[in-house]
Write a protein that binds this DNA or RNA. Structure first.
Lengths: 157, 157
DNA sequence: TGAAATAAAGAATAATATTCTTCATATATT
DNA sequence: AATATATGAAGAATATTATTCTTTATTTCA
């Protein structure tokens, strides 16, 4: 059967989701262990899929990608094939970084990141509105972002 | 003055935001260079803040954090101190992974990640609704997620 | 044209990851 | 209870990789 995570595992995950450049030695010291068991645990967490990947987090604004927009969308047709087609199309747009099917006032909530308002308008006109079965579309333009992280709270697992 | 990014820099960033565990050697080979200039460029990108950090991306569901909720919020008071206080409070909740001030039908859009619906209800009752000046609150419960990434499109920079 | 700065290469070194063997502890089985 | 089996950690040895340093070519600018 599958093993659940023990305290040490969640501590390692908590450390690595904050900073994956930590050496096994420094993690081991923090946990009062030697490097080999820490190393083996990390490899296990990777192999079993608890850790999906390691990535560099970029400063979007500094790079010139300054605008984040959330877009709530309803579709006119709700058959399975419509939904699948829509999701497939959406996932192919590099501007879209998130696509969630939701319950509530919309069918989908998208998160989009682009250079500026012009690029956003271009996306809407030349990509989004060309999708079939599109119903209501409501945009929330981000003015400022107070918090934006991937870190999940492992303290009570 | 500040340097802008050349083609090689953006290629390096594109590689590292996909997989930050790549060795400088493998990146250098892909770009047809040797390790030292690649290494120096990476250090420069880190030092100048284009790369903010390196993190492990975890599989939330596997760890037992299965529910993502987006919450649109309006506040009753719009003075500067209200907003700042609200943002500060929100940022201290570990369940909240994103907090954006937006224009449109809401003042703020929050992204929340918790174990399950019960944990969500607990959050609403014991944390969110205790905040002062809270106006309208609308939740979008995520049913499924088609795409969820941090990768920004560097192809046309 | 010449001097200074920039970027790359290649070699040398230091640090770290990774593997392997051994030991201790816990768990299960009879 | 006694023995076998599995699990996890330690420590040393090795392989890889990161990092530094020196040299050279190329570009930039006065």
């Amino acid at each position: 059967m599958a093993h659940s995570l023990d305290k040490i595992d969640t501590q390692i995950l908590a450390i690595l989701q904050k900073n994956s450049n930590r050496t096994t030695k420094s993690i081991a010291e923090e946990l009062g262990m030697t490097t080999s068991p820490v190393f083996e645990r990390i490899k296990k967490l990777e192999k079993e899929g608890y850790i999906k990947k390691y990535v560099a987090v970029l400063d979007n604004k500094k790079i010139g990608i300054k605008l984040t927009v959330f877009i709530g969308i309803t579709l006119q047709g709700h058959t399975r094939s419509y939904l699948e087609k829509f999701v497939t199309e959406i996932n192919n747009f590099p501007e879209i970084v998130e696509c969630h099917r939701v319950s509530g006032n919309f069918d989908y909530l998208l998160k989009l990141i682009v250079e500026d308002i012009e690029a956003y308008e271009t996306f809407i006109i030349s990509k989004l509105t060309l999708l079939p079965y599109l119903g209501n579309v409501q945009s929330l333009i981000t003015l400022s972002t107070g918090k934006e992280t991937n870190e999940i709270d492992l303290s009570r697992i």
